[in-house]
Design a protein around this nucleic acid. Structure first.
Lengths: 157, 157
DNA sequence: ACGTTATAGTTTCAATTGAAACCATTGGCA
DNA sequence: TGCCAATGGTTTCAATTGAAACTATAACGT
């Protein structure tokens, strides 16, 4: 006997999350898209480079921290480098690796975009009360465990 | 003074949701992708057609209920129709509109996929306790309000 | 009834993306 | 030392997607 109980898409968790997620991402993306011609992937690269500045990350590490694959990272970095937003050097000691850093331009973009992104997040969370925020945090941790925030940064440079 | 407090991507809500959402969607999608050569968009179309069967939906209505744009719907429907999975007629009284219905083949796919989708959802929710599930429900309602489930279905056919 | 505007859906063309192949370099090990 | 496998990253080619233009039909206002 076939399962004809129809799937109610709008109550289906993965679907709802997908809608929510796209809505949010797009809302923020539109801003930096328009102002800086920056795609989501590029913004993510900038964000992690800003976060781990000083070290100079390899593309592979950027990939890990952004949940993008290496091809996407390669392309994003290429665009960013072409625009003078990141500086790409070669790792000495391992000439396969790149060493990526934000340029002043890159930092400027970060400094302009980061607060807006945070503001968006704030606005979103403002729709929840304190309890709800706490539970959301907890639930997300269970559903999408955050990977440990990087160990051996010391081995790079 | 620039906002150099780095944006911690992995704690950033929109980012986390995006990761979570992609992980989930992909996990389910891989199954019907492999077994039926079905993309997410096509599956969504099938799901809403199944849900509102009997009425025969117009493409525009499918679009509304799947959060896809009309181009995406058009393409998904084209593929589905070509594969004999949906039947596309013309609305009498308004010959611009299409009237879409699942064929037997389409139903077969729905009946095979729907339970697996639900199982995935169950597995996911099983990682939460009852409290957490209730809060999640509530939080999602606040963040991504479900649109009212269709009024004037009577005007179609 | 007639012209204008709006709606439903499709098509086209360019940009984006994904998968696989590819190049360069390094690490392991016989 | 000299291979061979593994790693970091880029490129290529096809498939997917998005934006805008397009076709057909219907609705509206005069």
């Amino acid at each position: 006997m076939p399962d004809r109980a129809p799937l109610e898409l709008e109550r289906f968790l993965p679907y709802r999350l997908s809608i929510l997620s796209n809505t949010l991402s797009q809302a923020i993306a539109r801003e930096y898209e328009r102002r800086f011609g920056l795609g989501v992937t590029e913004w993510r690269v900038i964000a992690v480079l800003a976060r781990y500045d000083g070290e100079g990350l390899a593309a592979r590490e950027v990939a890990e921290r952004t949940a993008m694959d290496k091809v996407a990272v390669s392309r994003a970095v290429a665009r960013l480098a072409a625009a003078g937003r990141v500086i790409r050097r070669t790792h000495r000691g391992d000439r396969r690796r790149s060493v990526l850093r934000l340029s002043a331009k890159g930092w400027a973009i970060h400094d302009a975009v980061a607060p807006r992104a945070r503001a968006h997040e704030r606005d979103l969370l403002a729709r929840l009360d304190a309890d709800e925020r706490a539970w959301l945090e907890r639930i997300l941790d269970k559903l999408a465990p955050t990977r440990p925030p990087v160990k051996a940064l010391l081995t790079n440079r």
